[in-house]
Design a protein around this nucleic acid. Structure first.
Lengths: 91, 91
DNA sequence: GTTGGCGATGTCGATCTTGATCATGGAAAG
DNA sequence: CTTTCCATGATCAAGATCGACATCGCCAAC
């Protein structure tokens, strides 16, 4: 599923042009992205929680060099699936 | 940031009632949730990728019992931040 | 059709995950 | 807007998983 599919889902419930639907999706993702970059946690009950976390790890590995490289950045976004998404049964 | 904040952001760009904005957000999250439960990967360039992954682990630990408990489930949703969200500098 | 974000690879250690419970607060109803 | 409801956070331990880097191919986005 890509952005267009989400837009189509929106169009199905709220009749509007595809361009409008895409802009809507883009707007929401952009807002969420900005909020995360701003360090805010996004919590959507029943879906999940996006949370910016400081990364404590400080090392990685480079294939070609084979040496341990330091990880300069110290943040990452963690997504914690909500109740509905955690209740997945393996098929 | 919670659902209402996202709805407000939508209302700011697309004048509509709060109820409509909330329904819109709820609709999108619901669609994404269903897609994930259906095993589909959701890829939004520049934001991130939601991907259902089979969990290979099969054990954990329970505090109260203090015993090793088996993890029955074998799936979880992984969110991989896109380029814009990975480029976070620690403040 | 063109651009460029994203996946996979390999290593190795820090991180995450699962479960149950109480408290907090997101979410929905009056 | 206020109140109620129930999902979510933290916790403990052990073990599996993720992550970063660089590059090419692929596909999302324009």
């Amino acid at each position: 599923m890509i952005k267009i599919d989400i837009a189509n889902a929106l169009m199905a419930s709220y009749p509007c042009s595809r361009a409008t639907a895409l802009q809507c999706v883009d707007l929401l993702t952009e807002r969420m992205k900005q909020a995360l970059l701003d360090g805010h946690r996004i919590e959507i009950r029943g879906f999940g929680v996006f949370e910016p976390r400081p990364r404590k790890r400080g090392m990685g590995r480079n294939i070609k060099t084979g040496t341990t490289v330091e990880i300069p950045k110290g943040k990452s976004i963690r997504f914690k699936p909500g109740k509905d998404l955690r209740d997945i049964d393996m098929e």
